[in-house]
C-alpha cells in the first residue's frame, strides 16, 4: 500500500452513460469495450512520477446513474483533481455537471488551485453532436477550468487529458512517464478490494 501522502487522487464525475468508465479504461488499460455496463464505483491505480519520485495515481470512476449526495461529498473531499465528463451528444449531460461543479466549489471553497478538466467525450460521434466545442469552451471559461474534447473509442486526446490534468497541479511536479516510458505496473484494482482500501 502506498503512503497516504503519496497518493494523488483523481475523481471522474459525469452523468450516466457519458463514457467515464470508457475514458478511464482507455487510459489505464488502453482498451475500449463496446459494452454497456453502468458503474457502481471503481478505483484504478497507476504509478506515475511525482517530484522526482514515484507516486500512485488513483483514479476513482464514479457512478452517474444514481446520485447519493453523501457519497459524492465524500469523493469530492478526498479528491485532489477532478474530471467532469459530459457527452457532446447530450446537452443534458453537460447540464448535469453544473450541480457537481457547484458541489466541488462548495466543498473545496475555491477551485483556483484545484485541477479541474471539463471533458466533452464521444467526439467521434460528430453526427449526433448536440454541444458545440465553443459551448464547452465557454463553460470551461466560466468555471475557470481547462477544457478538452475526447473520444475514448478512437483514443483521441485521452492520454493528453490526464497529462494536462497533472500539469495543472502546481503543488507537485507530476508526469505520467517514469524514466521516459509509461509504467507497465498499471493495474485495475479488484473491485471489492478497491472499495475497502485506505485512501
Amino acid at each position: 500500500m502506498p503512503e497516504q501522502s503519496n497518493d494523488y487522487r483523481v475523481v471522474v464525475f459525469g452523468a450516466g452513460g457519458v463514457g467515464k468508465s470508457s475514458l478511464v479504461l482507455r487510459f489505464v488499460k488502453g482498451t475500449f469495450r463496446d459494452t454497456y455496463i453502468p458503474t457502481v464505483e471503481d478505483t484504478y491505480r497507476q504509478v506515475i512520477s511525482c517530484d522526482k519520485s514515484v507516486c500512485t495515481l488513483q483514479i476513482t470512476d464514479t457512478t452517474g446513474s444514481h446520485q447519493f449526495p453523501a457519497m459524492q461529498r465524500l469523493s469530492i473531499s478526498k479528491g485532489h483533481a477532478f474530471i467532469l465528463v459530459y457527452s457532446i451528444t447530450s446537452r443534458q449531460s453537460l447540464e448535469e455537471l453544473k450541480p457537481i461543479y457547484q458541489q466541488v466549489l462548495a466543498i473545496k471553497g475555491s477551485t483556483e488551485s484545484i485541477p479541474i478538466m471539463l471533458v466533452g467525450n464521444k467526439s467521434d460521434e460528430m453526427a449526433q453532436r448536440e454541444v458545440e466545442t465553443k459551448e464547452g469552451e465557454a463553460q470551461a471559461t466560466a468555471w475557470k477550468c481547462a477544457f478538452m474534447e475526447t473520444s475514448a473509442k478512437t483514443n483521441s486526446n485521452v492520454k493528453e487529458l490526464f497529462q494536462e490534468l497533472l500539469a495543472l497541479e502546481k503543488k507537485r511536479d507530476m508526469s505520467l512517464s517514469i524514466d521516459g516510458k509509461r509504467s507497465g505496473k498499471q493495474k485495475r484494482a479488484d473491485k471489492l478490494k478497491g472499495k475497502c482500501s485506505v485512501m
Partner: peptide, 28 residues
C-alpha cells in the same frame, strides 16, 4: 445493468455507518 442502476433505490440500510462501504460494497 438494471440491478446496478436501480438496486440502490430498492434496498438500503438505515444505519448510516460507513458511507463508502454502504454505497459501494453494499451496492454490489
Amino acid at each position: 445493468n438494471i440491478a446496478i442502476v436501480l438496486g440502490p433505490n430498492l434496498l438500503w440500510t438505515h444505519n448510516e455507518g460507513n458511507i463508502t462501504e454502504m454505497m459501494t460494497t453494499v451496492s454490489l
